[in-house]
């Protein structure tokens, strides 16, 4: 597996759980199952993401631990992202991160999730709107 691909998976889990430890465990779990083709690997990522998301052990904590020496975060306020993660539906969050942040191919993500590209786009649009609401509120309070 290419390092870039591992980076993408790790970044996905990091943004999905905002916890370095969980991201590491989840990434290694995907690597353990190492699939040969990329689309199937994304499917594995999706499956593990759903499992972890339902698992109370990995549920988003109030203060996710991210050490600055291992992850370089952009200079933005993460509280709206954290709030958004609490409410977000995993089936919308998954494509949002992969398509809007990691810039993965829409068709590959849709195939991993077993939905059509149109459905995926609609979900991303709706989820983005929700995220926008959180960011705007945060900006208004700032």
């Amino acid at each position: 597996m290419a390092e870039q691909e591992v980076k993408s998976i790790a970044l996905f889990f990091l943004l999905a759980f905002l916890d370095e430890k969980v991201a590491l465990i989840a990434t290694r779990a995907v690597l353990k199952k190492s699939r040969k083709n990329s689309s199937a690997r994304l499917k594995t990522v999706y499956k593990i993401f759903l499992d972890y998301r339902e698992n109370p052990k990995f549920r988003l904590s109030a203060t996710g631990i991210i050490q600055k020496n291992s992850v370089v975060l952009p200079n933005i306020n993460l509280s709206s992202w954290r709030q958004f993660l609490r409410d977000a539906d995993p089936q919308s969050l998954f494509p949002l991160i992969w398509i809007q942040i990691i810039k993965e191919n829409e068709v590959a993500v849709a195939s991993a999730m077993g939905v059509t590209a149109g459905t995926l786009r609609t979900r991303v649009g709706q989820t983005l709107e929700k995220l926008g609401g959180f960011v705007e509120t945060e900006l208004a309070h700032a």
Partner: peptide, 17 residues
């Protein structure tokens, strides 16, 4: 809202491991 969110996602994509 959508524009703000797209911009926010674009910023988040700058995260480096």
């Amino acid at each position: 809202s959508l524009e703000v969110a797209i911009k926010y996602c674009s910023d988040l994509s700058q995260t480096k491991l």
